[in-house]
Write a protein that binds this DNA or RNA. Structure first.
Lengths: 116, 116
DNA sequence: CGAAAATGAAACGCTTGCGTAACGGTCCGC
DNA sequence: GCGGACCGTTACGCAAGCGTTTCATTTTCG
């Protein structure tokens, strides 16, 4: 069942969620970082630097830096792949799951408040 | 009529919209900038630097800089208030409206593609 | 008037992210 | 085994955003 939105609802939802996120969250992730984080948590693993770079349409150092930042925040983790030690496998963390869970709740709450 | 979303749909929607926006749009606005832009276009004017700063919970220079950046992109415009020449009134632009219209379409499209 | 308040912008030093290019470690085919 | 390809990281110079502080302009009000 798809999500049917009017133009007003679509932008209104994005507006309120962004606003609330700016007000509440000091971390202030980039749009790119958020896209990476969601990709990691919503798409079945394994995830690699190269794969994420290709999916996002950005260069590898962009992914490396985003993982540095989000790793420092505890939102993701990195582990060497033992089967091919050139690869790095990106792992989810409890904190990251919690973070996205809260963020999802924020979207849902603001969605409920959307007028027709 | 509110927008009812499951947790999976909420995050999935945000995921795909972010992903597509990263891939397509070279401008890569900050979450703060996006919040400011949406505030300007979705909330009835007039908008001032001070007012936006209070709404977003940030300092005034943050707003000034965001308006500098988005002004250079043609997304907003600034005009001195003639009735109180200390104030600056933020104006919408055709390009800005177009930008948000496209962004709204993106949200709607990705919403339609959301599975239950 | 003239002093104090208010508004937005500019200055400053700092941090963070970017793209390009170069680098070390690892795998693979010959 | 060894040369080349592959993967992620690091280095570099640069641009952009941040918070705090200071400033110029304008208004307000005693």
């Amino acid at each position: 069942m798809p999500v049917e939105l009017t133009p007003s609802q679509a932008l209104g939802l994005w507006h309120k969620v962004s606003l609330e996120q700016v007000r509440v969250d000091g971390r202030d992730l980039t749009l790119r970082q958020m896209a990476i984080l969601l990709q990691i948590y919503l798409v079945p693993p394994p995830h690699t630097v190269r794969g994420l770079a290709a999916t996002l349409g950005v260069t590898k150092p962009v992914i490396t830096r985003a993982l540095d930042t989000m790793g420092a925040l505890g939102l993701v983790d990195r582990v060497r792949d033992d089967r091919d030690r050139r690869n790095v496998v990106i792992k989810r963390t409890v904190d990251g799951a919690l973070y996205l869970e809260k963020f999802g709740d924020l979207i849902i709450d603001q969605g409920r408040k959307q007028p027709k």
